[in-house]
Nucleic acid binder design. Structure first.
Lengths: 192, 192
DNA sequence: AAAGTCAATGAGTTTGGAGTCAGTGAAATG
DNA sequence: CATTTCACTGACTCCAAACTCATTGACTTT
């Protein structure tokens, strides 16, 4: 049985993580603990009651983000989908997290090392599922003879390129706007 | 006729820009003016004699970088090349600037607005040349019916993906290591 | 060659964000 | 009920980085 205090503490912790997610999504990871405290509606010092350092806060946030997104992804593999539906589902998941994910991929190199592990983990989960779907199609000889990692990297490369170069394209959600076009043409690329 | 002073001043300016290029390539754009001053072997204040702000220094550096790389690219279009040689030449140019270019693409979103214009400029020059080469091939009906911008974005997407995820692959030059593989497979993707 | 200019210096100032800590009051404990 | 614990507070310290400026002495001008 949890005491009131424990419940309160966990609630505050969640408040901070939620605020950090919002602030980082909007401002990027150079946003300050002050901004996070303001959004979370807690005092500045409270952040350091829950997280010893900013880096630790970021790592905890990313770990939560990683499990959340991976859970989404795992739900996909249970169904026996076509390549089209898989790619569409992948983009749909990313749309839910678009602003944050965009910051993550574009600032990953300036984040602490542990953050990179979380990121690699997300990528390998996607890779795993894409693999399964592609293998089925390959058996039917509709996919070109191209190494799996190139197939995977060109998909993520394309998506990430659109995300990081957002400003070249549109103000709103790049993924929303270009989803169909991206899927259609990507499939044209990898099919015979 | 330039006076000794002018010559000296230009030399120092170049010294600072060269140092900034080195430092940013090695450390990323969060490197400090102190580091740059040390590498340039000038005092800290000297940097601000030549550039009013760090942002201005970065913009000047990127403008120089932009013209330099665009000049390289223009030399390409003069020759009547095949797609393979064009792509190889593009990668070879990027190899010359790999460390710096890598930082640029991965940190572009945290750089001042003017920096982005320079970056867009570089991309459009590449786009222009790739366009020419592809159009020739398209006339010969060897390229798939895919919009030009997708062809372009999937090439840059792939290259940039390898560059920004450097750490996933190798310690040295990703481009050097994967050049042939990338070109070969990318061509497989876009050809019928 | 005297007077004036200015590139370069480096110690000093300013700014802003990360992290600290003594204090407070509500919750837990006995 | 009295005592102890502890989540939370916010003013404070510390630090690092950008930017300033009085000073210097070599170069330029007259």
């Amino acid at each position: 049985m949890k005491t009131k205090r424990q419940i309160q503490k966990e609630a505050t912790r969640k408040l901070i993580l939620d605020a950090a997610y919002q602030v980082y999504a909007n401002e990027g990871f150079s946003a300050t603990t002050n901004q996070i405290a303001k959004v979370a509606n807690v005092s500045h010092g409270t952040i350091f009651v829950h997280f010893p350092t900013v880096d630790n806060l970021i790592i905890c946030l990313l770990e939560r983000f990683g499990s959340e997104i991976n859970e989404h992804l795992h739900l996909l593999s249970e169904k026996d989908e076509s390549l089209e539906t898989f790619l569409a589902a992948h983009i749909n998941i990313l749309i839910c997290y678009e602003d944050f994910y965009k910051r993550l991929i574009s600032e990953i190199n300036s984040l602490p090392q542990e953050a990179k592990y979380v990121f690699i983990n997300i990528q390998s989960v996607v890779s795993l599922h894409l693999n399964q779907v592609i293998e089925r199609d390959k058996e039917q000889k509709v996919i070109k003879e191209i190494p799996m990692h190139i197939i995977f990297n060109s998909w993520l490369g394309l998506i990430h390129y659109y995300l990081t170069n957002n400003y070249l394209f549109a103000a709103g959600s790049v993924l929303m706007d270009h989803k169909d076009e991206l899927i259609l043409n990507y499939i044209k690329l990898i099919r015979k």
